[in-house]
Nucleic acid binder design. Structure first.
Lengths: 217, 217
DNA sequence: GTACATTTCAAACAAGTGTTTTAATTTAGT
DNA sequence: ACTAAATTAAAACACTTGTTTGAAATGTAC
């Protein structure tokens, strides 16, 4: 029995593809089991419910990504020198790109799923994430605060959420954006190219001195 | 017969509230007609379908907002001096805040709807918007390009979409963010406060010189 | 090979969706 | 006041959703 992919894996593979391109709410279990070529009831048998299937799909990536990020954050926090914001943000690059080893097109897939997760669902995914990886997130916020010592915590809060919006939206509509860019500018950027465009953009907005932000009107 | 709100208006008022807080897909016609206290069939009788109801809800704001924006853009384009990017972005402020005259909490409502529109739906709202207001949008892009003459069009394309992500995401999750900000930092910002925080953040990321964006790795 | 647990399968379930139909009611024009 | 059009109302329609059921099939251990 060579090449034995279990039913669970067949479901996970089909589910993540459909979830990423169509969203969680707009993907039915019948679509998933149809693509995976398994019986409809298999989802509830192996995962319990659709909710738990969604969490399992994300968990496959998060369980690889988050420990790596946590380690990198701790390392940066250990050396006491003040870190450049761009350096802090760049920590994400390598661990994200290594998701391609977890799965074919893993990076793109995961980031699209992340985008869907924040836009589609109201509650249970946010809770799931904070409950499992809240500690790691705190370390990141601390690093940003160290990189921008002149900004009050509330300003950093807002700017980080502005940035989260950029990332989530860009990744959720990644496919459409790539197509437009290819058609209008003849440029074919991979997900890696988008990430490298993203980081300086985010760093500029987050690190902007406060004095400048008061003179808008 | 004093205070006669028509059935159509009762439906529109209930629909926009539910759409803004729950999203288009997750709001059923029965919820809407229940809150509006009208018969279920009234939606299809007056608007034709749920799709057209969604468009009507947005249209009530867009028909006020977009001509005002178009006028402002044309005015800025007319005077040939090169405009500051912050000035270009600030054009949005007044017309947006005047939506409060259209409806109680109109600005917040509209911006949340905009957020929902870009994240929930796949096709028909994007098409609807581009078809009706594509010309106005082009003027805005032109203004941004004039304000950032050293940036290639493709870079502006990406950065504007990054910014769109920020706006859309922030407005879609506006309520949750305001609650967190109030709880964690004892600060109670209105939608106006968020807009004024947003603009310098966006301007910084969009106007960032290209040379800096190359040295990330 | 028999017995047991695991997994697969087709079918049905209960609940919810947008939409349509048909009749009753209200409104407006003359 | 009478007629015709516009609106409201209750019910049913056709369809999709996630989930459950109970019997077949498969795999595993003794």
């Amino acid at each position: 029995m060579v090449n034995k992919t279990t039913t669970q894996d067949k479901i996970l593979d089909a589910a993540e593809q459909l979830f990423a391109s169509t969203g969680f709410a707009d993907t039915s279990l019948r679509q998933i089991t149809g693509m995976a070529q398994v019986n409809l009831a298999a989802v509830n048998y192996h995962f319990g419910s659709k909710k738990e299937l969604i969490q399992s799909v994300l968990q496959r990536y998060l369980s690889v990504l988050m420990p790596r990020l946590d380690q990198e954050f701790s390392q940066l926090l250990a050396c006491q020198k003040q870190n450049d914001l761009t350096a802090v943000l760049s920590v994400f690059i390598k661990p994200l790109l290594e998701l391609n080893k977890v799965q074919h097109h893993g990076t793109r897939m995961f980031l699209q799923l992340l985008g869907r997760g924040y836009t589609d669902v109201q509650g249970h995914l946010r809770w799931f994430f904070n409950h499992h990886y809240g500690r790691t997130l705190d370390k990141f916020v601390l690093l940003v605060q160290q990189a921008c010592p002149d900004l009050p915590a509330s300003e950093i809060f807002w700017r980080l959420h502005f940035s989260l919006g950029t990332v989530v939206f860009t990744m959720a509509s990644n496919q459409a954006l790539q197509e437009i860019a290819a058609a209008d500018f003849n440029e074919n950027v991979e997900i890696e190219g988008v990430i490298h465009r993203l980081i300086p953009y985010l760093a500029a907005g987050i690190a902007l001195p406060l004095t400048l932000s008061g003179q808008t009107h």
